[in-house]
């Protein structure tokens, strides 16, 4: 049965690896790197993060090469390390994401009291000014999200940045707009409120 041959082949490969064979390492790397990369990008939505995951996983394999159990499938080892790495990154992103959200919510509620008699056109003009005064990248991200209704993932892909960076830009842009309008004596922001609905 060739099942045994496969086991034997892997056993040999891991023995070679334990003896510092860069060739064996490269073989294992070539077999699994794309599956790990693709899965990492699927969950982290960033080619750069995907590359970091691949590097972390195989760096660990290389450092651990003398401690591996040659009777155990290397695939399971690699996928476990990859899975934990991806999950840790994803959870970290989610935490930062939520922190950005909370800043946004705070600013939204802190500027919402006051009267409801404001004129929309006046706000629109000021709002345009506020957006125009944003730093270039923030402005680009903000407009893609607001005017073209792009999702975080789409904007990230288009600008080759991570979704978390997109989120950060949007969050900062909203804060900037709030401050700008505030400085212009406007406490009530129906337009900004409706803007926020897009994001929260």
């Amino acid at each position: 049965m060739h099942y045994n041959e496969v086991i034997y082949e892997e056993y040999k490969l891991l023995s070679l690896l334990a003896e510092d064979s860069e060739y064996a390492f490269q073989l294992i790397y070539d077999r699994y790197r794309n599956r790990i990369y693709q899965t990492a990008v699927r969950y982290l939505k960033s080619p750069h993060s995907g590359q970091e995951v691949v590097q972390d996983v195989f760096l660990k394999l290389w450092f651990e090469r003398k401690n591996l159990n040659p009777d155990r499938p290397i695939e399971a080892w690699l996928y476990t390390v990859a899975r934990n790495n991806i999950l840790n990154r994803l959870k970290k992103i989610a935490n930062e994401w939520k922190a950005l959200d909370q800043i946004g919510h705070l600013s939204a509620t802190s500027i919402c009291p006051a009267s409801d008699k404001a004129e929309t056109s006046e706000y629109n003009i000021l709002l345009h000014k506020a957006i125009a005064s944003l730093p270039e990248q923030q402005q680009k991200v903000f407009n893609l999200a607001r005017n073209e209704k792009r999702t975080y993932i789409q904007i990230a892909e288009q600008l080759s940045i991570s979704p978390l960076t997109v989120k950060t830009h949007i969050s900062r842009a909203l804060n900037h707009i709030r401050d700008f309008l505030h400085q212009n004596g406007i406490e009530f922001l129906p337009v900004l409120a409706s803007l926020l609905i897009i994001f929260f």
């Binding site: 790197r33 794309n34 599956r35 790990i36 990369y37 693709q38 899965t39 990008v41 699927r42 969950y43 080619p47 995907g50 590359q51 691949v54 996928y79 990859a82 899975r83 991806i86 999950l87 994803l90």
Partner: peptide, 21 residues
């Protein structure tokens, strides 16, 4: 759930957009 889904995608692969390294 998250753990299980990542594991599943690693083990079984998936259809849909994907690029190689």
């Amino acid at each position: 759930i998250l753990k299980e889904q990542v594991e599943q995608d690693l083990k079984n692969g998936f259809n849909g957009p994907k690029a190689n390294l």
